[in-house]
């Protein structure tokens, strides 16, 4: 009978896992509890990734391959070739590699029905979304951190600047939120490897464009003000799509 009389008590008492109703109340305690849940989900994904290295190896491996192929295909020593194609190769490579990683990240959750295990807990669906999106954001960020030095060497471009950090942060926020949504949508589809890029890439095209143009301005030596229109586009994209993705996500999970 021990299991009915634990210190914590029971399902007939109020638990501290934040529900949607409690989140709506907006109290600071609930906000902190919600952040704790989001972090716990992301940390769990990171722990699993550290143990099986499926996602980061896929993303970083693919993007390095893309960089290497482009350095063979384009004579980057000639004139301004590196400045012209470098930004496009960098972010397009990361976008394509991100698709592979996002696909894998969600497949892992579906293989053992663990997403349903999460859905059986009393946390709201948008916290599940934000936790999964934060996990994917960390995978993308680590992959970019691995890929960027290689890109800088291969294309001989000075990219280690604060401006590029801002571009990368805006890109990974948008990619991970939209990517998490579409990965969840396509994971139950038979041809999910095809479906995810078909859904994901057209939607993130404005963000990709903004990142490429802002990076092009950066390598051309332009100032913050000249690239600000692209950064504003990226910020707007992120705000809209983080909210929209979190709202749509809960409907996708319904059977």
């Amino acid at each position: 009978m021990a299991e009915f009389h634990s210190e914590r008590g029971s399902g007939d008492q109020t638990e501290t896992a934040p529900t949607s109703e409690q989140q709506d109340s907006g109290s600071p305690g609930v906000f902190v509890a919600s952040l704790g849940v989001i972090w716990a989900i992301a940390r769990k994904d990171l722990l699993l990734e550290l143990r099986n290295r499926d996602v980061i190896v896929s993303i970083a491996g693919f993007v390095l391959l893309v960089f290497a192929i482009f350095t063979f295909a384009i004579d980057i020593q000639q004139a301004d070739n590196a400045e012209l194609v470098g930004p496009g190769v960098l972010w397009a490579g990361i976008a394509f590699a991100g698709v592979i990683g996002l696909n894998r990240a969600f497949s892992l959750e579906m293989e053992r029905d663990t997403l349903e295990g999460l859905m059986l807990t009393p946390i709201s669906r948008d916290l599940i979304f934000l936790g999964k999106a934060l996990g994917n954001l960390m995978f993308l960020a680590i992959s970019i951190a691995i890929a960027l030095p290689v890109f800088a060497v291969l294309f001989n471009l000075v990219v280690f600047r604060l401006e590029l950090l801002a571009i990368a942060v805006l890109l990974v926020i948008g990619f991970s939120s939209v990517g998490t949504l579409f990965a969840a949508m396509s994971v139950r589809v038979r041809a999910r490897e095809i479906m995810l890029p078909l859904l994901f890439l057209p939607v993130v095209a404005p963000l990709l464009l903004a990142s490429i143009e802002a990076t092009a301005d950066l390598v051309a030596g332009d100032s913050w003000s000249e690239m600000s229109q692209w950064l504003q586009l990226a910020i707007g994209f992120d705000i809209v799509f983080v909210i929209v993705s979190a709202v749509i996500f809960q409907f996708i999970l319904e059977d």
Partner: peptide, 9 residues
Amino acid sequence: FFARMFGLP
């Protein structure tokens, strides 16, 4: 992990 999701402190 699941205890955390159920809010057990």
